[in-house]
Design a protein around this nucleic acid. Structure first.
Lengths: 276, 276
DNA sequence: TCATCTCACTTGTCATACCAGTTTAAATGC
DNA sequence: GCATTTAAACTGGTATGACAAGTGAGATGA
């Protein structure tokens, strides 16, 4: 009596489940047809898959604002007429997707959807991908290369005076932290993030931040080499100067040189004597 | 007796679990320390979280090639000394991340990691994000705008003769499918995918494909309007011509005009009479 | 009034049973 | 002997019950 929907008579659901799937019943109530691409969907997927789609539609259509509390697992269980595992797996899936937040003892809450959070959830998979395939790592380096150059150009076009001040402040702080390697890297990361944020597009910011993190994890590219801190500072300053001058081409070249230098130095230093 | 590790005496695991967590025992056997960022990790997370990390490390370190069959849930259960739900949730999580493939009746298999598959798994979240926030949709449109321009430039620099032939073949096919809207859109999609694939970077290809799909789902940008098919073809041809001439600037401008036109037309047509 | 504590309610985990697909190998028919 | 069929033994999927553990709010005490 302690657990498991005490109101419903036992066997009632299981019996009806044979005749008509409870999910289809629920679907007919809300009827979200043709959401994405008009599929008849006769496929036999998981039960949790159906539940997840129902929840997803609920999150999109209904007035579940960010931070709102979802029904408890038991309630959903009774509502959908399925067992707890199905509800649970669906909720877990949504959590992995970054759409809800589940904490022990509390009700699940609707997470506010944001690009940044999504990319963060994404990172685990990306790291695995990079760890298993060195080719993908090269591709990512290439992509970041192009991306950062585009960011530099965009920043040169759109920068305001406050943007410029912020960049200079970061570079100054970085120059003052040359002794502390960790702090130096943090400022380096912030520099690139600030650069991307000038565009005003959160997708750019999130991507820049994520790419930096991914590559830093594998000590590839973007790595700061001991003894070369001053060079890094100088290159950052050149980038800022180009942005101040609103010279997109010069900014792109400065960023190009910056990343190329880092990459070349990396290969020269680490590939000669592999591994610490 | 039918289920649940018949060999282990009951209560044996639970008893030891109080004294020393079985996971730490397992960890000490393999000892993957300092994989990502040297965290002491005293946090109290889920049990399934620990299991997932163990499995993750297993996938990365051991010789589990793509397509290899993982141990069954019951085996893992016994191996880690935890219940089936914990193992199950961990596996589900890995499946959502796209690292394993689980089918009813078969053993779970290691999925071959690929950028494209990862982006595909990503799509559900992205769609939700776009459905709930129109601002993000605008940001995505901007990002795709810049991305496609960069792709056009890259293609103009790197295109080979066979790339060119492929592009022209696609445009020809598209011109021949002007009557069938669905087919026309398919060819349009293929055109942009082929353009991105010229770069040789699978990340670009996957992103181009994904962005097209996301935006097409919301009828925003990139939409093909009835009666304007010939214009689309002409613009595609201009892009191909620019790429043939290896003129990056011209290619970028052609792509710019192409996407701008589509966007303007969209606003003019659909915003006047909202919704079908 | 405020701090504390208890208790109801939540999710997390375990255990068991059974269902539903898949594979495999033995039994059967030719 | 060989191909087909059938059944047994896997596999994951679902349901349910019980309990542990965490959270929060209302009751209780000072």
């Amino acid at each position: 009596m302690q657990d498991q929907r005490p109101n419903i008579p036992p066997r009632a659901r299981s019996a009806c489940a044979v005749v008509t799937k409870p999910l289809e019943l629920f679907r007919s109530l809300y009827d979200f047809g043709a959401m994405t691409a008009t599929k008849p969907k006769p496929r036999k997927k998981n039960l949790s898959h159906d539940i997840r789609e129902s929840l997803l539609a609920l999150l999109e259509n209904d007035a579940y604002g960010p931070g709102a509390a979802l029904p408890s697992e038991r309630e959903l269980m009774a509502q959908f007429g399925v067992g707890r595992p199905a509800v649970r797996e669906a909720m877990q899936h949504l959590q992995v997707m970054g759409l809800v937040e589940i904490r022990h003892g509390e009700r699940a809450k609707v997470a506010e959807p944001s690009i940044g959070k999504m990319v963060e959830h994404f990172s685990g998979t990306m790291r695995h991908l990079l760890a298993t395939s060195s080719a993908n790592l090269e591709h990512l380096k290439t992509a970041r290369f192009a991306f950062e150059k585009a960011m530099a150009q965009e920043a040169a076009r759109m920068r305001t005076t406050s943007d410029l001040e912020r960049l200079r402040r970061i570079v100054d702080a970085q120059a003052g932290a040359m002794s502390d390697m960790t702090s130096f890297l943090t400022h380096d990361r912030e520099f690139h993030r600030a650069l991307a944020s000038i565009s005003g597009n959160p997708i750019y910011t999130a991507l820049a931040e994520a790419m930096f993190g991914w590559l830093a994890d594998f000590h590839a590219d973007t790595v700061i080499l001991p003894g070369r801190e001053q060079l890094t500072i100088d290159e950052h300053l050149e980038i800022v100067d180009a942005i101040e001058a609103k010279n997109a081409a010069r900014a792109a070249k400065a960023m190009h040189d910056h990343l190329t230098r880092a990459n070349v130095l990396y290969h020269r230093t680490y590939l000669a004597s592999p591994e610490p």
